[in-house]
Computed example of a mutant assay.
Amino acid sequence: MPLARPVYHPAGHDAPLRAVLQDLKAGRWVSTRNLLTETPDWGLWTQRTQVLAAAVAGSDVVRAWLAEEPRSVAATVLHTRVTVERALRAHRAGHRHTNDLWREANSACRIASQTSPEDPVPWICLLALAQLDEGQRWDEHRVAAPEPMLFPGPWQLLAEAEKRDPGNREAYHRMLQFAYHRRPGAPLTEAVNFVHWASAAAPAGSPLHVLPLYVRVERYRREGGSERALDLHWIAEDATRGALRALQLWFDHAQPEAASLLDLNYLAHALWGAHHFHDAVRVFEALDPFYAVVPWTYRTTSPGDADAAAEAFVQARARCLHAARGPGPRD
């Protein structure tokens, strides 16, 4: 495997998406319309619309497209995505217009759900907005859970997304984000229960098997431990078991070129941390030439620094490659 410095691109291995992103950022939306029209399944549709909206949330290109093609399903859904992304960003920044943006996004979601009734994305967007409801004031955000060990929350919204695309990756990640925000500062017990419940019922090949790795990284991030503490964090028996489970039940059945770039990074990170270097090499090879800033940024002294995260990624990859050249399956 080449040892070139990795690159970050939000589209990852999705070459058609990489191509249209450039056009959309330049204000040209026709290629985006064509790509979304040709997108073959809801999982890829969800992933592509999320990446596209995040890339152009600061521009009016999607609004211009919708003005020219008001009956376009793709334009309507992408416009919804953009409004939701803006509301979430405003909330994170503590912006004074957050509530106005939230109302606009909620309205866009309802319109999109009627325009494209078979589409999971409007319901996923409503799930994303649920984390803004601090204190769970809205009835739809405090529905009783399907299992006693789970928290009350937007379960009906998740059910609507699940009905349209069973096991939709983003839907479950949005529910996980809700669990994080439901009681700020609370232990991660609810999140842990949720990801184990979600992954336990998932079929082979489902990205939901990677969910527990996200909570483990989040736990370390909150603890703010030393590098040595992170090493111990990832070689614990349950951590190793979670990494191998994700490898065997997701990676070994998935198509890496269609996989989430984040999922691949989290799995490579977990296997490296668990000292399963040979297995980690397989995931690093599937990632080539890409990487993502998280979770590698948490191995640095400057969280959020993309260059530092890339260096942590390179060092971990080199460690795994070196071990893989040795005589045994573990170093």
Rank of each mutant, 00 (worst) to 15 (best):
R221D: 11
Y220N: 13
N193S: 13
R183I: 10
A239Y: 04
G225D: 14
V217W: 08
G205Y: 07
E227L: 15
H196S: 06
N193T: 09
A171E: 01
A186P: 02
V192E: 14
M175N: 01
A161Q: 05
A186E: 09
P166L: 01
L230A: 13
A191C: 15
Y214D: 02
L211H: 06
A204Q: 13
R183H: 08
R216M: 14
V210Y: 03
L176R: 03
F194Q: 00
A243Q: 03
P212L: 04
E218L: 09
A243T: 01
L188F: 05
P212A: 02
E160T: 06
L213H: 04
G224Y: 10
F178Q: 03
T189E: 11
L188H: 11
W234S: 08
A204G: 07
W234L: 15
H173W: 15
A204L: 11
I235K: 08
A171V: 05
A198E: 00
Q177T: 09
V192N: 08
P212V: 02
A229D: 11
E237N: 10
A191K: 11
A179L: 02
N168F: 02
R164F: 04
G167E: 03
R216I: 08
R241T: 13
A243N: 03
R216H: 11
V195A: 01
H173Y: 07
V195N: 04
R221P: 07
V192W: 10
W197S: 09
W234P: 00
A202G: 07
E170D: 07
L244Q: 14
A200P: 06
E190C: 02
R222C: 06
L232E: 14
A200S: 15
R216Y: 10
H173Q: 15
L211K: 01
P166R: 04
A198T: 02
R221V: 15
E160C: 10
E160N: 12
T240N: 08
H233E: 12
W234A: 09
N193P: 09
A200H: 12
G167V: 07
A200F: 13
E190N: 11
R228S: 13
W234R: 02
V192G: 06
R245P: 00
G167Q: 01
A239K: 03
A202M: 14
Q177F: 04
R182A: 13
H196E: 14
H209A: 06
E170F: 00
A191H: 08
E218F: 04
V195M: 09
R216T: 06
P184C: 01
A171C: 04
V217K: 04
A161F: 04
D238K: 05
H196Y: 14
G242V: 00
R228Q: 14
D231H: 06
P203D: 09
S226H: 14
A246S: 07
A204P: 12
Y214C: 05
L247A: 01
R182W: 04
L247I: 00
M175G: 05
L232I: 07
R222I: 06
M175R: 03
R228H: 13
P207N: 12
E160R: 14
A159G: 05
R183Y: 00
L188K: 11
H181P: 00
R183M: 05
E237R: 13
A239R: 02
L208A: 12
L232T: 11
M175F: 09
A243S: 06
Y214Q: 12
D231M: 13
R219I: 10
D238C: 05
L158R: 06
Q177M: 08
A202E: 04
E190P: 02
F178M: 05
S226F: 14
H181L: 02
A239I: 08
S199D: 11
V210N: 05
A179T: 07
N193W: 10
